[in-house]
Design a binder for these strands. Structure first.
Lengths: 207, 207
DNA sequence: GCCAAAATGAAACATGCGTTTAAAATGCCA
DNA sequence: TGGCATTTTAAACGCATGTTTCATTTTGGC
């Protein structure tokens, strides 16, 4: 395996677990068994390494997700919000074919990208992959046409917050949950618990 | 104003905005117009400063919240989840009497305490103020007895994430919302939009 | 097999961090 | 007012970070 890939893999695992600011290049290069200077040689900087990491997943996820949302809109005449959110599951799980724990790693990275580093990654994602949000809004509107655009605005942000927060603290929560309920929990389990929650939240009756 | 209070106020604003790890003692002491060493002199360490900060709010919020939850449980024979979450509003808004933007600052700090610093603050809060969570769980259980304790666990954390994320991006979102819908929105308005969302999420049918 | 290009390695650099030190200033009470 | 405890100050300490340098080794095409 070449150095670049070794770095990407080691960085992904560490970043997902401990966040971007919480992981040093020395930890990464040590885990990858490469020289410290290799990161700056191959990627330019820590920021560029992070971008490359996200790009590896987003380039796969983005078209899959847009397709899945379009398909679920075409097929179902009376679309439910649960179906809209279900459309996320399969594209997300295909990320496991890219790398072991790919889905979990990506979602945790996404979570960290919203809370770490003054959100420079949020900007990177929303400007480079706008199709995801656009299709998502369309699908929600089709499933719940009565929802005012103002409620739509707020609830989409609430949903994003719920998902992102859940993902960035998933490893800690899974530990607690396994101690308290000694039940096996994985990332897919969390996703499937998330769906009824956010679908119900978005579908709430307006007051 | 004495040095200790100047530090607390400056630290609160900066921590709420940029997180604990994202804010240095030099920024804080500079904003507070006190000497760098004052933090370690008056509080002992950065960690103790953070604890003192949270304590200032939690000592007020905790009894208020416990009382409000007990009251809403006693009064209503047929309790709804909306009523449970409504019980949070007034105690949270009283934090604005402690300090300008107190409610918003506290909720943002709470959010950072879950994502920053390997969750040592989460431990601090749950072990020092168990009454909040206990009464909340009781109230939710009374309003929705069929909910399993495992679903309760996850939805409680989803809810916290939703609230925390909403609050941490509130100022930015309020600006956008006022431009797009020219409607007046403030913290209380966001909280009141949040209630039906999280109540509906917690109340979702289990799959 | 040679040589330029690419990659690696060890070390140092510059910076920012939380914390500590010890002297100076201030406050307070006898 | 004198003296002692409290507080403030400027400076430095030790450490970890991302990045850069430059010598060395490895690689790939002619």
């Amino acid at each position: 395996m070449d150095t670049k890939t070794k770095i990407l893999n080691a960085a992904e695992n560490l970043f997902a677990d401990k966040g971007f600011t919480g992981t040093s290049l020395r930890e990464i290069t040590s885990a990858a068994e490469v020289n410290l200077a290799a990161v700056n040689y191959h990627f330019g900087s820590k920021k560029e390494l992070i971008k490359a990491l996200m790009k590896r997943y987003l380039d796969v996820l983005s078209p899959e997700l847009e397709g899945a949302l379009l398909r679920v809109m075409e097929k179902n005449d009376d679309l439910s919000l649960d179906q809209v959110f279900e459309a996320f599951v399969e594209p997300l799980l295909t990320l496991n074919t890219l790398k072991e724990q790919g889905t979990s790693n990506f979602l945790q990275l996404l979570g960290h990208s919203y809370t770490d580093s003054q959100g420079f990654l949020r900007w990177f994602i929303t400007t480079n992959y706008p199709g995801i949000i656009d299709n998502f809004v369309l699908a929600v509107h089709k499933a719940y046409p009565q929802l005012s655009s103002e409620d739509m605005f707020w609830r989409l942000h609430f949903t994003m917050g719920t998902a992102v927060f859940a993902m960035s603290s998933t490893s800690a929560l899974i530990d607690i949950a396994q101690n308290d309920f000694d039940s096996e929990v994985d990332i897919e389990g969390v996703i499937r618990r998330l769906i009824p929650y956010v679908a119900s939240g978005v579908g709430a009756k307006s007051h």
